[in-house]
Design a protein around this nucleic acid. Structure first.
Lengths: 110, 110
DNA sequence: CTCTTGTGCAACCACAGAGTTGCATATACT
DNA sequence: AGTATATGCAACTCTGTGGTTGCACAAGAG
């Protein structure tokens, strides 16, 4: 039996990026369509600069990519990385439950 | 077309709990078998009190449960909640990529 | 009974980061 | 040209929290 999948820095960084309400607000807003930092600032209760910082960390973990449109920088949500991390987390959770089931099985066999 | 799945506080809390290296160390250690806070403190480079706090937040989001064994409190990893959140994240990521694919499709049709 | 070990609680410190204001710069629009 | 809007960078504040030490208490182990 393996010791199970182990998370690397990517998972922690991704979870860290997803551990903020404002960042989720930004992501869901971008889910409606690409938008610039300034545009997001108009529909969210925080400063454009704050949003810019959030977009930077989102881009860092690959949740977002930029598209130049004239003088403005549009941001676009990318699901690939999120799904990849999600599958790894699911695998970890499944592993834990398998272990737990094994323990319960042993307990019942006594 | 729906606006897509939206995260509630559970997802944020779970991600917040998973956004710490030390907490992952604890989780992987518990993946080897149940252990008390004191036992974990012996194999990790942090204080027992620090570990106790971490275990509290892990228990808060349902990643861990306690089992009384004599005078000591053993902690056990639970995968159910983690897998549940993981599936929701995967769904969100998939939705984003579907949207992106649709956009690309439109762009190519012009 | 005594000693040891496991927990719990509280105060305190230090750093990360979420958010702000302010300014400088560049690029559209009229 | 001149104005307005989008972006970038820097400094500053302030709260959250990871980590510590210290003490008090409970309950096995001898």
């Amino acid at each position: 039996m393996s010791t199970g999948p182990s998370p690397d820095g990517t998972v922690v960084a991704m979870c860290s990026a997803l551990a903020d309400e404002t960042r989720w607000s930004i992501l869901t807003a971008l889910g409606q369509g690409d938008a610039s930092a300034s545009a997001l600032a108009r529909s969210l209760p925080v400063t454009r600069q704050a949003i810019a910082k959030h977009l930077a960390v989102l881009q860092e973990v690959g949740l977002v990519e930029t598209v130049q449109v004239g003088r403005e920088v549009r941001y676009r949500v990318i699901g690939t990385e999120l799904s990849a991390v999600a599958r790894r987390l699911d695998a970890i959770g499944t592993e834990w439950d398998r272990r737990l089931a094994a323990i319960k099985h042993i307990a019942e066999s006594i």
